[in-house]
């Protein structure tokens, strides 16, 4: 069963169900931004080279720019908009705010989604490990030292 025009795609995003009619070539990133108005996820390079589009699929961090929306059907997707619960910032979000772990803010949603996963994966054990496992998220403003501090702080909070 193939179609070259549009296909129905069912997406489960931030606990809500969405049905879209999409060309198969539509990436998850463009579906989020252009079709669903979930513009918190950013496009920095569109080629998997910057990490700005990091979202969680089935709880793992992935790049929405290299994921077809159709591929994500049947998976659970979380974006930056789905991180805070009932108005309460996620500990990683709160730590980013407190540590000034961003400047222009454009890479920030990707950094935060990446950081949440980094901690969950158990890759936030030391500053060195945080730096390596956060290396997939470019920050042109140079907020890295504060990002490391924020991840370190949030990792401790999540653990306690």
């Amino acid at each position: 069963m193939t179609s070259k025009t549009t296909i129905p795609v069912h997406l489960d995003i931030n606990g809500r169900h969405h049905t879209l009619e999409l060309e198969p070539r539509v990436t998850l990133l463009d579906a989020l931004r252009d079709r669903l108005g979930l513009t918190g996820t950013k496009k920095g390079c569109d080629h998997g080279q910057c990490g700005a589009c990091t979202v969680h699929v089935d709880g793992e961090r992935v790049l929405a720019c290299l994921t077809l929306a159709a591929q994500a059907e049947g998976r659970t997707i979380t974006t930056i908009e789905g991180l805070a619960r009932e108005g309460e910032l996620h500990p990683v979000q709160a730590a980013f705010l407190e540590q000034d772990a961003f400047q222009c803010g454009y890479c920030t949603p990707g950094q935060i989604m990446s950081a949440v996963a980094c901690i969950r994966e158990g890759h936030a054990g030391s500053d060195e490990e945080i730096r390596e496992y956060m290396a997939g998220n470019l920050c042109r403003c140079g907020a890295y030292p504060h990002i490391v501090a924020a991840v370190r702080q949030a990792a401790l909070e999540v653990a306690s």
Partner: peptide, 26 residues
Amino acid sequence: LAGGTTLIDLAKCGVAEPDMLVDITH
């Protein structure tokens, strides 16, 4: 089509020009 990290990238570059992608990730 598996993870797509090469194929989707190259499709955007115009190097890969598939008519059909067979998704095996499921």
